[in-house]
Design a protein around this nucleic acid. Structure first.
Lengths: 169, 169
DNA sequence: AATTTATGTCAACAAGACTGACATAAATTA
DNA sequence: TAATTTATGTCAGTCTTGTTGACATAAATT
């Protein structure tokens, strides 16, 4: 907050130099990469009348079969009202089923049906292909670098949640 | 579309095995990484009464000062009506100025003001810090691996557009 | 002079997030 | 047992950011 307005409104005609120490290259690559990464499943979802929100739900229910509504909300970091609409649709159309929790009967465990599993895989397939293409020339060591980088981008508190070991208790 | 419903509705209680060849690990890491990556600027934007759409506009106008409305639409891949709302706000509040195109006077070249440059840097700073943290243990070679990976995730047609050389014509 | 192009604007709509309020059943606590 | 808390569901309204379609204007091109 320094080189601010004198009497301002003046257009700045030069691009940021890099003296500011901002990593614009990766910031921008990350934006474009993620946008295209999500565009593959978006196209498929369209043909089902579903949106990105449905995708997320189907994805996590498939990855962690039996998670409860509360756990799903925790992972997605959305409100239950937001979840309710899409979850209801997915249940009504037999992609997901609810099972009353065995220990705690207030809980609803969420499971994919065969149809739901199938959809989840269909949505993941082009994303996985895109990743494979991006890794085509990479060595196994490169893969580890990328995973470490991506994990390092996640908020530290959330990292335990995303470990591959999230299913054994 | 095969292992579909018999009389279905049956919950599938097992997680996908990996036999399907889907790269769930990176798919999921990418989701969490991007979400947290965008959460930093989102918080700042809130205090300005701006949203993510404003961020994108401010970012690209700063990165490519003097781009035209049509070029901005092309980069963002949104409609002009979507852009209009947020661009108008940014112009009205003196973050961005329009300059009549010198060659073609129908065009509007977009430039940041000092205020706009300053906002763009403020929004990019925490993202850049997050990236630096994620790269903390990485070697210079690792950085190249990550850039190559991210670029490989972008649709091939768009890659020329995002090259660092996008400013010289 | 007629047409095309770059931009702007009006209106309506949709997805997916939000808040706040209230309902129900089951578990927990006093 | 009675009271409270918890897990889930639902109703209603709002906001941001995307969409389509239609039309207006000025400048460039044919």
């Amino acid at each position: 907050m320094n080189e601010q307005q004198d009497r301002s409104g003046e257009p700045i005609r030069t691009a940021p130099t890099g003296d500011d120490g901002i990593d614009f290259t990766i910031i921008e690559l990350f934006f474009f990469a993620y946008r295209d990464f999500t565009s593959d499943p978006d196209q498929i979802l369209d043909t089902y009348g579903f949106g990105r929100a449905h995708h997320r739900v189907v994805h996590f229910v498939n990855r962690r079969p039996g998670l409860t509504v509360a756990e799903l909300l925790e992972v997605l970091k959305i409100t239950k009202q937001s979840l309710a609409r899409v979850l209801k649709q997915l249940i009504d159309t037999d992609y997901i089923v609810q099972v009353q929790g065995p220990r705690d009967r207030r809980q609803r465990e969420l499971y994919p049906t065969a149809k739901g599993r199938s959809l989840a895989l269909a949505l993941a397939a082009p994303q996985s292909r895109r990743i494979a293409r991006a890794l085509a020339e990479a060595t196994p060591g490169d893969r580890a670098v990328i995973e470490t980088f991506l994990k390092g981008m996640v908020n530290p508190e959330l990292r335990p949640q995303i470990e591959d070991g999230h299913r054994q208790d």
